[in-house]
Structure formats: structure tokens, C-alpha cells
Design a protein around this nucleic acid. Sequence first.
DNA 1: TCTTCTTGTTACCGGTTTATAACCACGCCG
DNA 2: CGGCGTGGTTATAAACCGGTAACAAGAAGA
Lengths: 225, 225
Amino acid sequence: MKILVADDDLDLLGLVAYSLSQAGYLVIKASDGPGALAAFDAESPDLVILDINMPGTSGFEVCTAIRARGDVPVMMLTARGEEQDLVKALDLGADDYLTKPFSPKTLLARVKALLRRSTAERAQAPLAAGRVTLDIENYTVRIANNPPIALTKLELRLLQMLLAQAGRAVNSDRLLVQVWGHRGSGDRQLLKQLVHRLRHKIEANPAVPQLLQTAAPSGYKLVVD
Amino acid sequence: MKILVADDDLDLLGLVAYSLSQAGYLVIKASDGPGALAAFDAESPDLVILDINMPGTSGFEVCTAIRARGDVPVMMLTARGEEQDLVKALDLGADDYLTKPFSPKTLLARVKALLRRSTAERAQAPLAAGRVTLDIENYTVRIANNPPIALTKLELRLLQMLLAQAGRAVNSDRLLVQVWGHRGSGDRQLLKQLVHRLRHKIEANPAVPQLLQTAAPSGYKLVVD
DNA sequence: TCTTCTTGTTACCGGTTTATAACCACGCCG
DNA sequence: CGGCGTGGTTATAAACCGGTAACAAGAAGA
């Protein structure tokens, strides 16, 4: 998870960045408004933390600009007792705010909550690579421009795993665990069957697979080109 | 918009309720945990404001119970300097919190932000989509220009959930939780029956559903054209 | 209280999906 | 050549799922 932090107070910036990176987040720093926007465009972070009081371009303007670009969650930082700011920030579309001073613990808790919420909202984007498009919601695949093909639960999961590593071979044991869970590990027959059925669905000629190919020495890969 | 407020401090409860109702919200009050849950089930509010420190059932427990029933936004109230509580509350799935004492202005700003976010998330779950119009007050649906059809409580909730995601498939487990709460989770038979009964009410030919269709491999969707 | 409507429970049917087993073809290596 | 491991295929059994019916339990209203 990538987090953009913008604050002109370099001490605070360093502290916030340190706390976040300790917690495993990748942090991008900016010390003014224009810098924050440039970094936003370059890095497309998953979350933005903005100080309201920055010289030049204020946090408000940056927030507005970010809102215009998409729905990345934005957290505003404000000095204590500036309720005006807070109301304005939330009206501009900020998702949360923190009043300085705050503890790293609080920061992390709020960041975590925001990220959880936003990833939960997305979650349902179609997964695609090359000519293969997977519609997880409707349990269908679409190859090139052909009509969508209905999939079963297991077929979907197998394709999902292969698509995530599109073009590269995925080990059989790994697939077994990912599709069936640990229960099925070691049972190659399950995978054989599933591949067989899936090929009959998605391949023009199942005997000579173009998409779902066998990869030596023990695995499969999805060729998407 | 309906807001449920639960606090054992009756002065504060009154103050909060007054501020909110002045702002045009419909307020339901509760002074303890069990009362809050009962009111929640009876009124299905759009937002819940919970004091953490209540005698008997704590705000945490109430919060957990509400999370289990759906994704209504929850705001927690906590006394200053209780960061443990705050972290715990957010981990339990609370969406926001306020530290006492707070001004009515702050309260309203946060409430507004939470409600805006949740309604945006729900993709403005309306009472109507395409030719299907749901009258929640009167427990009726209207299909195209036909006369309204009376619904039971469960039928209404099911339609409400499907209508909110009109056209898209909704997972059975999700429906079970949303309609029955966690109690019914895992019991597909309940859903089967409800769908069956509902189809007999709203479909011209229940055997070939045009509106309430089965979505592979485990869900239903409302087709509204 | 009695009656009616709603909801929950159990059972069964037919279809699909998944699991299990057996068999074949192929390449590898002694 | 012949065992052995691998992947592909076929066949069959078991599990699961959705739809339906019938009935019991519960809630609501007269």
C-alpha cells in the first residue's frame, strides 16, 4: 500500500513517514501543494494525508484537485481548534481528518480504517490481461470479442490465479492450494480434471490448447498475448 | 434520514438528539446497549451514534452486533484520552469517533460526512429502478404500471437489497446476512423459500422469472431493464 | 380467544458440479 | 525392453444447488 504524505513541517512529515513505513506502508513525501500533486500523478497512491496549512497551495486546493482525479481516500491534518477548517475539509470531500498533535497509534488506526474501507469499496473491478477478461461478479470469462462464457466456482478461481500470473507458469501444487485450500494439496487428479473441463469451455480446440497451456515440469500457464 | 443515538448520559443524549433533529434528522434515542440493539432492529436507522461507556452492554458489543447486521455507518463517542478505546472501536468496524466534549457543529459536520459517504457507497440506493418501484412506507412494489403488490417484511428487505444493486448479482450469503442478520447465515433454505414466494407475487410466470433471476453460481439479481 | 397471514422447517426432485477411479499415451532412464 | 512418473481422457459416483411442496410454528389482528 502506497501512501502520499504532504506537510511543510519537515519534522512532522518525517515522523508520520517513519510511523507509516514502520507499519509496512510505502511512503511518498511531499513538502508543498504542487509537489504533492506531482507526486500524486506520478505514483498514484492508495491514500493521501494532507496538511491543511501549507504555504502557497493550501491543503484544500490539493484536496479538491485530488477529488477531481478520482476517489482516493484523503485524510486531512489540522491544528487543534480550527473547526472551520475541519468542516470545510469534509465538505470538499476529505474522508477523515486528524487534529494535531496526534499519536502514531491513532494515525495508524485511522489509516488502517480508511484503507480497509476503500479497498472494500473497489474489490469488484474486472480482472483482465491481453484478450482474457474475467468478470468475477458474474462468473464469466470473455476471450477476445467472443461472447462471455459461464464458469463454475472452481473454474473461476483457477483462471483468477493463472491470470494474476498471466504468461508465467504456475506450479501445480501452488494451484491446488490456491483453488482448493490445503485440503486438496497433493491431489493432482483434481487439477487435471479441472483443467480438462476448463479447456473444453474456453479453447477452440481443447486438444491443442492455445490459452491454458501445460508448462513443464509441473504446472500450467495462461497465454494471453 | 434516521439516526439512532445511544448514550446512558441522558443530558448528553438529549443535547445530541436536539442538535440532530434541529438539523432535520429523525432521531431515535436509546439509553443502554440492549435498548439500542432493539431500536436498531425495529427502526433500521441510516446512522448509529454509540457511546462506548455504557453500563451493561458496552458500546463495543453493540457495535459488533450492528456490524454483523449490515454496513450501517457507526460513530463512537469516547471520553478524552482513551486511545485504547478508539483503536479498538475502529478495529471493530466503527467508521468514525468523536471525543467528548464536542461542539454541535463538529457533530453535525461529521454526521453529514458519514452519511454522504455511506449514501455514495450505496450508489444512492433508491426506492426505484427501471420499472420496479418500492414503497417502503406501505410495504408495496409496483412493477411498470400494474397495481401495487403488497409485501411482507422479509420480502421488502430482500427487494430493497436487490434493488440497491439493481442489475447486478448479489451473493446469497450476503443476502442472508442483510435480510435475516447473522442468525440466518448459512441457511440457504430460508432464501430459497423467500425467493420462491416473492416470485409468485411479482412474476407473471414464476417458473420463468423475468425480474428476480437466479445468478450463477450462487446469488440472485433483479433485472430492471 | 380464534383466525389469518407470515415465517421457519423438513423433505424430495432434477440438474449441475465436483470427487474418485481407471485407463491410455508419452517420455525418461536403467 | 519394461517399469515409472507424468498428463490427458473417459466413466461413474457423490455432493451440492435451486426449485417445489407440504406442514408446523409463530406473529398479528379481529
